[in-house]
Design a protein around this nucleic acid. Structure first.
Lengths: 155, 155
DNA sequence: GTGTATGCAAAGTTTTTGCATTCGA
DNA sequence: TCGAATGCAAAAACTTTGCATACAC
């Protein structure tokens, strides 16, 4: 546990950066949160412990983590086009987002490598990275729809 | 050819909408352009023929096309997080973006269906849509790097 | 003590909206 | 004619930045 906090601490030490209370708080939230928060959502969570913490600190911290490859960001197909930050240490993985409740589920795929290789071969290109995004209804929302019968929309 | 222009014309007729010069121009650019322009890029192209055309008209037209499922939008991992609009009629397809020259290449994958099914089964979820995005160097940029020997960055 | 990080406010970017005017059917 | 679409300007939504202050080392 506390992988990100530890890693970040180490990186800070190496670069002569400083471990502030704000950073420690943000790191630990990201560490234990099994989600993909927007900057705003992260601020909200942080405010439970430090109501003074500022949005720009959140962004600066996230950008630093990004530059250290400890966090990555992506924009899902949501109404609000905010970046969502993924604290999973950079192992290759993919995402499913429930279009109803916005939950994000991560998953792995052995076939992804095959797809990359295939594209490379066909296009004599060099694929470096990439990922899959799926949209649909998560288990909960899907079953809620079924039980409600003919309703088109889960709630 | 002119698939999008025709389709859009039909939809407009059905809804009592109007085929203006601005719309005709934008439709035909999207129709023949084999790319994924941002709203701004589309405006620039349109300005070659109608310098009066306004950015809000571009957005309004793109949003209408989106609502008609004649265009879709996505945000790639670029410095500027602008939406890019994909005029491909809604057949399932995927994207590769060259991180050097920003070219977008579309591709199909038979394995994608397998991945979706697999995710559905494992999570008892309902997958509705989704896609793959790959990043790397396109053929041209890749080979330019090779020929330049040890240089890390293609230009 | 010194220089890094923070908070705040202002600015930057991208997209949307209100409204008077224009224009297609 | 008359209602839908446009242009313009202003606002909204999201993110970044400058600067004075605070604080970690």
């Amino acid at each position: 546990m506390s992988k990100l906090l530890e890693k970040a601490e180490e990186r800070l030490r190496d670069q002569g950066g400083r471990m502030t209370n704000q950073r420690r708080l943000l790191f630990s939230i990201l560490d234990t949160l099994g989600e993909h928060p927007t900057a705003e959502e992260l601020l909200l969570l942080a405010h439970q412990q430090d109501p003074e913490l500022n949005l720009s600190t959140v962004y600066r911290t996230l950008r630093w983590l990004e530059s250290e490859n400890l966090v990555s960001s992506r924009v899902f197909a949501e109404e609000r086009r905010q970046e969502r930050f993924d604290p999973a240490l950079p192992t290759e993985h993919h995402h499913f987002m429930c279009t109803n409740c916005k939950a994000v589920i991560e998953f792995d795929s052995e076939l992804f490598g095959v797809i990359k290789d295939h594209f490379q071969d066909e296009n004599s290109a060099k694929v470096v990275t990439g990922s899959i995004v799926l949209y649909g209804l998560c288990s909960d929302c899907h079953h809620r729809v079924i039980f409600k019968g003919s309703k088109l929309k889960a709630d």
